[in-house]
């Protein structure tokens, strides 16, 4: 709860930038042309996409990368980035990215998909792309639901998690078990880097950005497919108020899908 509710404390005007200060962060990152989007209040996906675009800018890859988007809530961004984008069909992004990467071997080709897109519709795509060691980075935004349809069961939905088609919570008996995608990919020889981050607090956002930088570094070094799973909040799909979603992520989603670097062929820094 916010302890700052004493009305006497002076609210500082925040309409104009000060002239005796250095800018540390801007509204919309350079590689996102319009910050406006129609995703729900408290959605974690814009935070994750910002972390990815910040990492790309950090590595100076803006004019040597191609994004391949899946279909889901994050598709809202595929027409608002200042990097080249190829919009793929639901589930197909890793295959589409394979085609792009084979034609432009040196580029930083990467996919952005949701868990529904990658782990449900297109799991075969990413598994085989990993087995082939395709020189691409696959980013999976995992909120444990199909967000765009309002929050339905996916293969990463955790036991007990309520969704629009598991209103009383997912049970193994009725809805089967969740699958841990990062772990699945970490055991495939063609991968060079596998990690799982989260965007439910500033610390995790910074940690996730580091993982994305490492993933692209491994990809640029030709170490095989890089995979970064990013746990994101979906208050709408979780039946959870926006300010409780970060803790819900930590207890529910991250309880099954542990945050951390699972595999890396990069030499330790």
């Amino acid at each position: 709860m916010n302890r700052r509710n004493n009305d006497e404390l002076r609210v500082i005007a925040t309409e104009h930038a000060p002239d005796d200060a250095n800018q540390v962060a801007d509204f919309t990152p350079g590689l996102i042309d319009v910050g406006e989007h129609h995703l729900c209040p408290g959605c974690g996906e814009p935070i994750a996409i910002r972390a990815v675009m910040d990492a790309i800018a950090l590595l100076g890859l803006a004019d040597t990368c191609i994004a391949v988007f899946g279909i889901g809530c994050s598709t809202a961004f595929s027409n608002n980035l200042d990097v080249e984008v190829l919009q793929a069909l639901h589930g197909r992004a890793p295959s589409v990215a394979t085609g792009v990467a084979r034609v432009h071997p040196g580029l930083a080709v990467f996919t952005i998909q949701g868990d529904g897109d990658m782990a449900n519709e297109g799991l075969q795509e990413v598994l085989h792309a990993a087995a082939r060691g395709e020189n691409i980075v696959c980013i999976m935004l995992n909120n444990g639901v199909f967000g765009e349809t309002g929050g339905h069961l996916t293969v990463t939905t955790t036991i007990g998690q309520r969704t629009k088609n598991t209103l009383d919570g997912r049970t193994a008996a009725e809805h089967g078990h969740p699958m841990r995608i990062a772990e699945l990919l970490a055991q495939i020889d063609g991968v060079g880097y596998v990690a799982r981050g989260a965007v439910n607090d500033a610390g995790n956002v910074a940690r996730t950005k580091r993982m994305v930088v490492e993933a692209f570094t491994a990809q640029q070094a030709g170490l095989g497919l890089s995979f970064v799973e990013i746990l994101t909040m979906c208050p709408t799909g979780w039946f959870v108020p926006t300010d409780e979603a970060p803790d819900y992520l930590a207890s529910t989603l991250a309880g099954t899908h542990g945050v951390g670097v699972l595999r890396s062929a990069l030499e330790p820094a």
């Binding site: 800018q23 540390v24 974690g44 814009p46």
Partner: peptide, 16 residues
């Protein structure tokens, strides 16, 4: 700024 889903913050640090 890092956690805002709607990019509402521009952050400044004073010289002093």
């Amino acid at each position: 700024a890092d956690v805002c889903p709607d990019f509402c913050f521009q952050v400044w640090r004073y010289d002093t």
